[in-house]
Amino acid sequence: MSYEPDILGFACNWCGYAGADGAGQAKLQYPTNFRIIRVMCLGRVDPSFILRAFEDGYDGVALIGCHIGDCHYVSGNINAQDVVKHVQGILDTMGLGRARLRIEEVSSAEGPVFARVVNAFKDELVAMGPNPLKVAKPTFAQEEAQL
């Protein structure tokens, strides 16, 4: 089986999440292993959320929010850029590499852009290989045997 990276997305209510909706309505393809957590604003995303995702074995994390200047809370996306920069530094020190975390600007009208950035991220993650902290998920049969 080919390797499918698990990606966690934090998308803001106003732009990123609406962009994902747009991509869905236009029936654009993007990876099924991309899971989205909707937040009101990317300013809500704390470094601990991102690192917890990597601890849990996600191969990549993407923050998807409004274009700079369009944040509904003025500067949440600017703060998020700062958070991303620092967490990328932590990921480098950890040896996981900064490329596993990115921040993207997608407006509510940009469904195709959403699909494009997620697909591009997935391709890069495939090239990087899995997160070394990933714990092999038990198969259905193994889970059943445990019960």
């Binding site: 704390d46 470094p47 601990s48 690192l51 917890r52 601890e55 950890m94 040896g95």
Partner: peptide, 24 residues
Amino acid sequence: KHGRLMQILQRMMANPSLKQDRLG
């Protein structure tokens, strides 16, 4: 106050598969 960031880092580091790059 930091969402237990220190402890998340520690749990990640407790994983023997981690290969750090910490001497920069």
